[in-house]
């Protein structure tokens, strides 16, 4: 809280962005989790620079804890969910974004305007904030892309990538 202002919720029903990864990663539900949400849905949207700063703050908090902690950012890149364009994917935009993410280029990652993202990546593209927060948490580290594939029936390009702190 000293670095980034947050809100807190006593009640929260998780959406697919949290439940689907947990379903596959923790099917037994036997590992404590701390759910975190970044507004990627509607104005006022979280500024990209603040998403990166939020990641840095998370890292600071995690470093101060004794537990071994995995930080998982989930969300889509370009997509137009719940619109007549559902299924459209801007693969070139996605790959450019992933290139920026993999080298953890803070200026490039936070250089998009919301108008540009909305135009080129749809309203679903606002979810780049979760990727950017992870990059902030792993500042100084680069990423490794495991997979990326545009899958129209899923209405998004599906990707898995990791940033490891071992390179520090």
């Amino acid at each position: 809280m000293a670095d980034v202002d947050l809100a807190y919720a006593e009640e929260w029903k998780f959406d697919h962005g949290i439940m689907v990864p947990l379903h596959f990663l923790l099917p037994e539900g036997d590992v404590p989790i701390i759910p975190v949400n970044i507004n990627c849905q509607g104005p006022p949207l979280t500024p990209l620079a603040r998403a990166y700063a939020f990641g840095r703050a998370l890292r600071k908090a995690c470093d101060a804890a004794v537990e071994r902690i995995a930080l998982i950012g989930t969300g889509g890149i370009s997509h137009w969910p719940a619109t007549p364009d559902s299924g459209k994917i801007n693969e070139a935009w996605d790959r450019e974004f992933l290139d920026r993410w993999l080298v953890n280029d803070r200026a490039a990652l936070t250089g998009y305007t919301d108008q540009e993202t909305w135009r080129d990546a749809g309203q679903g593209g606002f979810e780049i904030r979760t990727f950017i927060a992870v990059a902030g948490a792993a500042e100084g580290c680069t990423g490794e892309l495991y997979c990326y594939a545009p899958i129209p029936i899923f209405a998004v390009g599906c990707t898995v990538a990791r940033m490891s702190l071992r390179s520090l």
């Binding site: 509607g42 619109t83 007549p84 364009d85 909305w118 749809g122 309203q123």
Partner: peptide, 29 residues
Amino acid sequence: YIAAMGDGLARYGPVRHGLYTTTDGQGAV
């Protein structure tokens, strides 16, 4: 559901508010 939204655009015009628009600009910005 997807088709109904397209039909709505054809019948009632561009999206009036919000972000859930189409890529051809038929909607509010």
